[in-house]
Amino acid sequence: MIDVLKKIVLAIALPALLFAAWWFASAGSENFYWPPLREILRTFGEVWTGERLRTDVLPSVLRLAAGYAVAVLVGVSLGVVVGGNRRVRAVLEPVLEFFRAIPPPVLVPVIMLFAGIGDTMKVVVIAAGCVWPILLNTVEGVRAVDGVLADTCRSYGISGGARLRHLVLRSASPQIAAGMRQALSIGIILMVISEMFAASNGLGFAIVQFQRGFAIPDMWSGILLLGLLGLILSVLFRLVEGRALAWYHGQRRAQRGTR
């Protein structure tokens, strides 16, 4: 419990300091586009009510969750296949590098042609951007599986699903988690970008509407909410990762202690 509290404190320490610096730096501001933080916070409470959270924040979070889940499923599945088979990797690697180099926001107009302007388009955009760090980290994690452990599994006749679960995925899980952590921040960015195109709700849509209506404090409150959402998701991810990879972190601490 103490370790969990330490992780939470470390996660929120720097954002709290930046928040305090913002408060004092903007305290006497009379700039229309740079309102004082106290005004933004007052607007925050007025704008982001229960109704607004239901109509804008909840749809955004659900789209992010759906796109992220698709990216994890596709990235890990394809990464295991590519990382575990040299011939498949040789064939697919140039194609994967080509598509990885295309910025996902550029694909939004193309995806709109095939998926329309509804939630499907937004989920596909999020998944298209999140899949790459997960896929590439999974490939490298699978390729780095200890050869001695692989030979041991072979000697004991461990194959198929048991080998995949207990050797491949377990060995690659630290790098998979690193890719998932990177993908989470990318997913939040793409969630906002996708909602700026032909949307009728969502955080990205709300922020653009505030900007077009010159409701500057409202716009800043939406940006602040996005930052808080990212912080909350980051803390939750760290907690889940720490629990799922407790064996790995314990192993690392033990190795550091023997040096």
Results as ranks from 00 to 15, higher is better:
residue 182 Q to T: 15
residue 34 W to F: 15
residue 220 W to V: 06
residue 88 V to G: 02
residue 214 F to V: 12
residue 180 M to N: 02
residue 249 H to N: 14
residue 236 L to K: 08
residue 62 L to T: 11
residue 249 H to P: 05
residue 230 G to N: 07
residue 182 Q to N: 14
residue 18 L to F: 13
residue 25 A to E: 10
residue 222 G to L: 09
residue 37 L to W: 01
residue 43 T to K: 14
residue 37 L to E: 04
residue 104 P to G: 01
residue 106 V to K: 08
residue 61 V to H: 00
residue 5 L to I: 11
residue 124 V to W: 00
residue 29 S to L: 11
residue 47 V to I: 14
residue 27 A to Q: 11
residue 172 A to T: 09
residue 199 A to P: 05
residue 118 G to M: 00
residue 235 V to T: 07
residue 43 T to S: 13
residue 87 R to I: 15
residue 64 L to K: 03
residue 254 A to W: 09
residue 207 I to N: 05
residue 234 S to V: 12
residue 34 W to C: 14
residue 31 N to A: 13
residue 258 T to R: 15
residue 63 R to G: 03
residue 109 P to E: 07
residue 18 L to M: 12
residue 88 V to W: 07
residue 147 G to N: 08
residue 201 N to T: 11
residue 61 V to C: 09
residue 172 A to L: 10
residue 87 R to E: 15
residue 178 A to S: 12
residue 128 A to Y: 05
residue 29 S to P: 11
residue 84 G to D: 07
residue 159 S to K: 13
residue 107 L to Y: 05
residue 81 V to M: 15
residue 112 M to S: 13
residue 109 P to A: 11
residue 91 V to Y: 15
residue 239 L to F: 07
residue 48 W to N: 01
residue 76 V to P: 05
residue 62 L to F: 08
residue 167 L to H: 04
residue 40 I to T: 06
residue 186 I to C: 09
residue 122 K to M: 01
residue 242 G to E: 02
residue 6 K to E: 12
residue 49 T to S: 11
residue 189 I to Y: 07
residue 107 L to G: 02
residue 194 S to L: 03
residue 17 L to Q: 07
residue 191 M to D: 06
residue 193 I to A: 13
residue 187 G to V: 08
residue 257 G to Y: 13
residue 218 D to K: 14
residue 84 G to I: 10
residue 124 V to N: 00
residue 20 A to N: 02
residue 91 V to D: 06
residue 174 P to W: 04
residue 251 Q to Y: 15
residue 55 T to R: 09
residue 224 L to E: 10
residue 225 L to E: 06
residue 170 R to F: 11
residue 221 S to P: 06
residue 184 L to Y: 02
residue 156 Y to I: 13
residue 157 G to R: 01
residue 133 P to D: 03
residue 166 H to T: 13
residue 53 L to Y: 08
residue 4 V to T: 15
residue 78 L to P: 03
